[in-house]
Amino acid sequence: MEVRTIKVFTTVDNINLHTQVVDMSMTYGQQFGPTYLDGADVTKIKPHNSHEGKTFYVLPNDDTLRVEAFEYYHTTDPSFLGRYMSALNHTKKWKYPQVNGLTSIKWADNNCYLATALLTLQQIELKFNPPALQDAYYRARAGEAANFCALILAYCNKTVGELGDVRETMSYLFQHANLDSCKRVLNVVCKTCGQQQTTLKGVEAVMYMGTLSYEQFKKGVQIPCTCGKQATKYLVQQESPFVMMSAPPAQYELKHGTFTCASEYTGNYQCGHYKHITSKETLYCIDGALLTKSSEYKGPITDVFYKENSYTTTIK
């Protein structure tokens, strides 16, 4: 009895394709271990004539594949690729409408935090270190965002349907971005203890939790000093293409032309909904596939993004 075979390709990165001759009487799992086709788990399936010449994702289970996976995804987590594939199996079914010149995501599976993050990423200057993220990001900007969303979920250790947080998501993504040249110098002034300067680099240099107003941050924000008295913390120097200011959701007025974009969060910790506000020729609110415009805006804002380049204080 002759062994019926077909020729397929296996890959971990969709760049390096490895030619395989597979036995049609055995499952993919018996031949390769966990195997995925377009995100779908085909591990328990036997090869079919229609699979001839198709590319299958496999887990990096030998040295060659491990090197290829690390170079593309910059992670050695053995569960990463499987999590990416199972997320992709959902995100490829989502709709990605162009809204006001940006790629958004039609609401499904509690994905409003991903839509808000995706919209924000198209408006701030950011370059990702893992080629996987950078490639998928370019495709997302062009309207094909399924891979990018699935990668975000995998890097953030999230599953489809789980509630997510924009600030946490951005923080994970910033860790995989090139923020080497970003720098922030802060000064804390206390009447009792004097003053202390701190220099922050990388992710810490672009994120701040405690106030939404970048102007206020430049002037000074009140913080408790270690001595128990009130101290003032203010920005001395900022070198970065953008800054992200966050605070627990509270009524906040966004003035046209003073910011790049913002995240609105309605609801409580267990259950809520994100919308995205962007400042173009007027203010726009993007909620999944829905767009509304207004000249002014007041609502429960939790993150505001500002364009920056270089700032030095005039406070002496």
Rank of each mutant, 00 (worst) to 15 (best):
Y96G: 04
L102G: 05
A231M: 04
R66N: 10
C112S: 03
A117K: 02
K92W: 05
I223L: 09
S294Y: 14
R66K: 14
A136D: 03
S86M: 11
T76K: 08
E162I: 03
A154K: 01
P34R: 10
S263D: 06
L179V: 02
T258G: 08
T260M: 15
L119T: 05
C285Q: 15
T260P: 00
H273Y: 00
K7L: 12
L212Y: 02
N14K: 11
V22D: 05
Y57C: 09
A132V: 03
R141T: 10
T302V: 06
I15N: 08
V304H: 01
E253G: 08
V188H: 12
M207E: 05
M26Y: 14
S86N: 13
Q134C: 09
G220F: 02
T19V: 13
Y36D: 05
F174Y: 06
G164Y: 03
T260A: 13
D135M: 11
F9L: 11
L186P: 02
A40F: 12
Q30N: 14
E264K: 03
D63V: 08
Y265L: 00
Y284C: 15
K218D: 00
C193H: 03
T302R: 00
T120G: 05
A132S: 07
T302E: 01
Y306K: 05
T282Y: 14
Q31G: 07
P248F: 13
V189G: 05
N268C: 09
Q175Y: 08
T312I: 12
I45Q: 14
N157H: 13
R66F: 13
K233T: 11
G267N: 06
S171V: 12
Y137G: 03
T43P: 04
Y208E: 09
E71A: 14
G39I: 07
C285H: 09
E204V: 06
L254D: 00
Q216M: 11
A177W: 00
H176W: 15
Q123A: 07
T211D: 07
Q134L: 06
G29Q: 11
S295K: 15
T192R: 12
L200Y: 14
S213G: 04
L151M: 07
Y252F: 12
C193T: 02
M26G: 11
E52W: 11
V42E: 06
K293Q: 15
V12Q: 08
K183R: 14
A145N: 04
V304K: 00
I6L: 14
F70E: 12
L114K: 04
S279D: 15
Y252V: 13
M24S: 13
K229G: 15
T10S: 09
G257C: 06
L186H: 08
N268H: 13
Q270S: 11
V160A: 08
T312G: 08
D38E: 14
Y172F: 12
K92E: 07
N309S: 09
E281S: 07
T260I: 15
G267E: 14
G257Q: 06
C149K: 02
Y252W: 12
